[in-house]
Amino acid sequence: MIRFENVSKRYPGGQEALSQLSFHLAPGEFAFLTGHSGAGKSTLLKLIMLMERPTSGQLLINGKNLNRLHSSQVPYYRRRVGVVFQSHQLLFDRTVYDNVALPLQIMGHPQADIGRRVRAALDKVGLLGREQQNPINLSTGEQQRVGIARAVVHKPRILLADEPTGNLDPALSAEVMALFREFSEVGVTVLIATHDIALIEPLGCRRLHLHHGRMSETGP
C-alpha cells in the first residue's frame, strides 16, 4: 500500500532529513514510526501527504507513483488518506459536527449521507451527542478524538497520525491506540508517528525507527 524506494529528502540549505529510505506497508498493516524529534518522522508523513515532495527516490501508494501525480490531482489523492495531528487542527468557528463533516462536504457527499457518517464516526470515538458543541469547550482528549473522527469519516485507505497521543494521559493514549488498531483490522493501513516507546512496546507491532534520517526496523 505504501512503498518507499530509496527515498531521500533534502531541504534547501543542505540538511538531509531523510536518506535512502526503503520500506513497504501492506494493506491493513499497522506500524509505528519512532525516533527522536528531528529524526524525520514528520517529514516522512508529509511526503505521504504530498505536503512535501521527495528530493530523490520513488514513493508508491497503492501502486501509483506519487512523483508523477500532478499538483492539480493532489486534493483527490489526499481524500484517500486520513491524517491525525498532535495539534488536532480543529476549527473553532464551527461545531464538532461541522468539523467532522468537512472532508465529506469537500467530497460533495449528499447531506443525508454526511449526517449518517458523521454520527457514526463520532459514535466510534465515543463523542456521539456532542456534535452541536464547539470543540473549544471539549477537553484535550476529546478534541483529539474529534480529530480522529474527522480523519476516518470518509473511510480512507490510509490513516496517518503524527504524535496522536502527545497531549493525552496514558489511559486515554491506550484507548486511542486501540481505536487505531481497530481501523487496521478492517483493512486500513495505519502508520503512527510517536516517541512514546513505553506505550507501544507492549503492543508488539512493527516499528520503523528513524535515526538522523536513516531507518532501522524492528518487527513483531
Binding site: S72, P75, Y76, R78, R79, Q89, L102, P103, I106, M107
Partner: peptide, 10 residues
C-alpha cells in the same frame, strides 16, 4: 490549511 489537508481543491 485544514480544507487543503483533507482534500479541498483550489
Amino acid at each position: 490549511t485544514v480544507v487543503k489537508l483533507v482534500g479541498g481543491t483550489d
